[in-house]
Structures are given as C-alpha cells and as structure tokens.
Design a protein around this nucleic acid. Structure first.
Lengths: 341, 341
DNA sequence: TGGCGCACTGTTAACGCTAACATGAAGCAG
DNA sequence: CTGCTTCATGTTAGCGTTAACAGTGCGCCA
C-alpha cells in the first residue's frame, strides 16, 4: 500500500498569518507574538520593524488559535432573562464597559426565563472556554453547578446576595428596599400602608421587597400593610379597581414594587379625583418616567448598570490572579424623594 | 548540542478531551467528532456507545479547538451604540433568538456612539473569526471596510436602507415614517402641522423622519410644517416653552420623532389647559408608555426586535451557503391610531 | 578577567479538534 | 461473480497560535 506523497489539498485559509509578519520583519513568530501580547519584552528596533510589517501585510491576529494555545479566551459570558427589559440589558452594558478596556469581549445569552435554556447556555459557554461567567439570579440546576465547578470558571451571580454564593455575587437586598420605603412612609406620617407586588412566585425580587416592607412596618409599630398581588402584568385598565380598593381600605401610602406599576397607578388617580400625595402617597422603583409624571414619583433607584460594572471588575481581578477579598458585593440603592409622597 | 528527551512540562489542561470519549466508546476520535456534528453519519451501535461514553467521562467539546480546525466559529457579533436604550437592545435579542437554535452564540459590542470604538470592535471581532457581523447604522470607516472585505465576513447593517448596501441590510425608511404621519394628519383634517425632531446631525434617523414628513406635507398641498429641533434631550421643563410656541403659531397637529418626546409633551398639555386632540393633536413613536397616558398616543411602531431577528435569518441563510436573493430587507413599520389624533 | 544576571530572541512541541483522504464491508445491477 | 456505489469508520496532517525552554550577547561587578 504505497501512499502517494503529499497531494492533499491545503486547509490554509489564505489569510495573513503571524508567520507572514515574522518573515516581513525578519524575526521569529514568537517575537511577533510577544510584540502583540507583551510589547515591553521586545527590543525597540524589532518592535518598529514588526509594527511596520503588521501594517504592510495587513495582519489581524487569529484569536481563536491564540485561545487554543494559551487556554485563555478573553471572552466573558453573561446570561440574562431578556434584553427587552432595560433592568437586564443595563448590566450587560456595565459588564461590557468594564471588560472592553482589558481586551475582553462579551458573549450574551438570553434565557427568556427558561431554566433549561440557561443550562444549555452554560454548557455552550463552557465549551467556548469562556474566562468568566455572569449569571442573572441565584440558583443553577445541579448539572450546571457540576459543570462550572469542573471547568473552574469564575462565576458572578447578579442581583442576589445569598449568604453562601456559588462563587462570587453582586447584588442588593430587596428586603432592604422594601424596608427603606416603609421607613420613609412612617417618617412622613403615613400610618395606613399598602404594597402592590407581583404574584408570580418566581419573582423573588418583588417577594423580597414585599417581605422587607411588611417587616419594617411591623417593627415601626404600624398596622400590617395591605398586600396586593395582581396576577397579570399591570395594564392600564387594571389600575382603577386597584385604586378603588386602596381608597375603600383607607390606605394612605402605597409602595409599588415595579417601576411601571407606580406610573400606571399615578396616571389613573386623576380620573378618580385623587390628589397626590394628600389623598394617596405613591412610592415606586425609579425609571425614566418617574420624573415625567406630575407629581414626580418618589422612588428607589436600583443600580442596574453598576451591577454589571462591578461584576466585570470582580471577574477582572480574579482573572488577573489577584485575591478577591469580597466575594459578596452589596451595591446598595438610592432613595429619591419626589412629589408623590 | 544534545537535546535531553522530553522533560518538557505538559501543557494539557487536564480536562476531558474527545480522545477520552473515543477510548471509552472504542471508536476513533473522528467518529466521536462526527457523532457531535453530523449524527446521521454514525451507525446506531457506535452512536449509543458514544452517547454513553460522553456522559460517563463528562465531556464538553472544546469549541475553540473546533473553530480553529474547521475555520468556523459559530459566533455572530453585533455592534450597537448602547444597550441602555431598548431600541438598540431589542435587535440583539432578536438576533440571539434567531441564532441560538442553530447553535450560534452572540458577541455584543457597544460603541457609545464612538466611531473609533466601532472600528476597534470590528478589528477584534474579525480577530475572533466571527462567522457574521451585524452593525447598527450605515457607514463604516475605510479601514473597517477593507478589513471586512479581506476577511469575507458576511455583514448586515441594521436600521438603514442604503441603495447600495455594503453587503446586506435590514431596516426601514425613516422618510416613509414621517410621510405616513403627515398623511395621517392630513386625512384627519389637520392643516397646520409641526414636527419636533432632534438637532444632532448624527441622528440621521430623526432627520430622515423630519424630511419625509415635510415632503409629504408639501405633496399634499399643506403649508410647510413648523420644524423644531431642540438642542438637548427633551426634559420635562422643556415641554412648556415648546407647547407655548406651538399654540402661538396655531399648530393643529405635531409629530414627535422620538418616543419619549410625545409622552413628555402630552403630559404637559394639561397644565396649559390644552385639550387633546381638539386643541392639539400629537403623534409619536410607540413605546410602552404611549398607551399609559390619557389619551393614548397615536404612534408608529418600529419593529426593533424584528430588525435583529431578520438580520439573524439573513446571516443564517448566507452561512448555510444558500443564495440570499434579497440583500436589502425593508421591515416596514406599524401605524397605530389612538386617542391623541 | 571571569562569572553572573539580564534583556532579548529563537526553537520545538503542543493546544484539541476537524478536513481530507483511505479503507473495508455490504449492497446491487448486469 | 465482477465492478461499482454506498455506508461506516479509520488515519494523517494540519488549523495558527503560544508555553516552555534554550540560547546569545552585553554590561557590570568582584
């Protein structure tokens, strides 16, 4: 069985390689590689010739090959439920801004709130050998945990502050948000409180806010707040019955745990002839529209951009091999008093 | 110069490789590779043993190595100005949804409207050997064009409809949007029109809408609309002087070229005692809040999600080697009449 | 003057996968 | 039974880079 000598078709991509640069500059490929990754290690004449050669031949380094050889991809992935909601899109922006200066790129995956999609994304991202991963929410399924542990990929959870994070976490306390609003209402002299949350059990964020709000009301000696949990997302026509209910119950101040809710509510008070805040005080979560309505809405601003930014910085520190003393970062939140309370 | 035999430290990552699966299943690595990429080519017994072996040894394919060998990364990149604005975040979601089922991942880059950042991102993405690229807006700088042409990467431009796209494009005509609103106003009997746009020259979107609006007004024999181009982004306190101006000039209907603008304007009409639409009709661009105000705002909905989705499908067709007859896709837009006109 | 360290550059062998080609067995028409 | 095709699988040689190691030459100090 004689084998014919190399007649095999070349697999080359025809693109400029590091070798072409090396030849044009009269150095070895390794020197070119060093020039790109650690310029300080390369002498001035060689640097000048390499820089010229790169422009001359039009070289764009193949980062895929580099990743394979170095076992570092310089890619960080982020998993969010959806990009349609700015509260989830902003952390992606923050992460991207933190990482870009260091030459990292961001892979995004959206789950549409499906746990199995999240698991599939984690699998795919580990396959891509991402250097780090940011995941919205607090809990992964067991196979994902094992996968991540086996891969040793640094992971940051976003928005949650579990006592024992899986690896690292950046978030804030929703209970503290609720408590802060309750304390504000108490301070302003409102005695009869209510809160409108979200019925879906998976929305732990809203649930935490409701819990913190009620706990603080109790601690301050107020009556138990009226807790309303509409089933559906809030629409404009749902506002009137809700408001009726609040008025009938003699509620003086209401906290809406989502940003849209407070705006919808406020826009509908006028129809019922309610004066804000004298007949009813409204507190909510901040958004662009909280300041557009009249009166502007007292609100708590959650630092969505910061969550991503700080997650990115945490990952960078870890990837640089620096110690990360604080594996659990509380971003806090901002309370903004406006006319509605 | 005798060289000592292999004492070199292994560079292996210690992770499970395709070879481990092959050994456990009693087949060659190539068969495992085929099982993963083209299962139909692998016999049933071998398939069963490979599937079992993968679970047994906990194999996660290294897609970086695969990309290098096959020269296909199964990554598509998208460049947007910012993710803070839903109109730009939505196409990312659409692209992601179109590509995920086919095993593609999405790399996002944000430019913050800086041309040089865009160029740097394009360079980095080509270095990553992305299989396709979606870019917001119509024009790249010359070095980027050359880079993209040399790399042969399929490119979709988003939001624009140039006569001669660089490669492919998915967008809509802003002039048509303006014209549609002008036609609507004319049809409803409004004779004295105005438009509030955006002064920044880089905002070609707003400029196109203004142009189309005025052209259609002229075509319909109406007087030239009053064109207002506020310098700053619209704040609540800017609304009153603008409204004053509209009233003084006897304007009957105004078109706001951005979504927030129309809401701000409408929310401020009440203070001035203006009745909508009898004293002033307001048309705008759709957003969540267009239906929350009273009256709800007649608006044009731009299909941001669809722009990304269709861009993704276009790229997929191209990457599958299918012919792409329509390199220029007009997504159109939706006109929604509500109470404000 | 010799020895040592430092700065710079070069050589070799992976990294983990897949394209291209090869092989062998089975099917099948003539 | 021959020659041809098809199917399933194996073998070989990269893909383009970087880690690890090996010089080489120079300056500096004892």
């Amino acid at each position: 069985m004689e084998r014919s000598p190399i007649t095999r078709r070349s697999r080359g991509t025809g693109r400029v390689r590091i070798e072409d640069v090396a030849r044009a500059a009269g150095v070895s490929t390794q020197t070119v590689s060093r020039f790109l990754r650690a310029p300080a290690q390369v002498g001035p004449e060689a640097s000048a010739r390499i820089a010229a050669a790169i422009l001359e031949v039009g070289y764009v380094p193949n980062l895929v090959a580099g990743s394979l050889a170095s076992n570092r991809s310089r890619i960080v992935a982020i998993i969010v439920p959806t990009l349609a909601n700015p509260v989830h899109a902003q952390p992606v922006q923050g992460l991207s801004d933190a990482l870009r200066p260091q030459g990292f790129q961001v892979l995004v995956g959206t789950t549409d709130f499906q746990a199995e999609t999240e698991a599939a994304l984690i699998h795919a991202f580990i396959g891509r050998r991402v250097d780090g991963l940011a995941v919205t929410g607090g809990s992964f399924a067991e196979p994902s945990r094992q996968l991540l542990e086996a891969a040793g990929t640094p992971v940051v959870q976003l928005w949650e502050l579990p006592e024992q994070p899986f690896d690292m976490t950046v978030g804030l306390s929703n209970a503290a948000i609720g408590a802060r609003m309750a304390a504000h209402f108490a301070e302003r002299g409102y005695r009869s409180l209510a809160v409108i949350g979200h019925a879906e059990a998976s929305d732990t964020r809203s649930a935490g806010r409701v819990t913190g709000y009620c706990a603080e009301a109790k601690r301050l000696g107020l009556a138990d707040p009226l807790v309303l949990l509409p089933q559906r997302p809030m629409l404009i026509r749902d506002a009137t019955p809700l408001l009726d209910r609040l008025v009938i119950q003699g509620v003086e101040a209401v906290f809406c745990t989502s940003s849209q809710l407070s705006v919808v509510l406020l826009l509908n008070t006028r129809r019922l002839g309610l004066a804000i805040p004298s007949d009813l005080a409204i507190g909510g979560i901040d958004s662009d529209f909280a300041t557009l309505v009249d009166p502007a809405i007292t609100a708590i601003r959650v630092p969505a951009y910061d969550v991503g930014l700080k997650a990115g910085r945490l990952l960078l520190r870890r990837l640089a091999g620096e110690p990360v003393p604080e594996r659990r970062i509380d971003t806090g939140f901002t309370f903004i008093q406006r006319g509605s309370t």
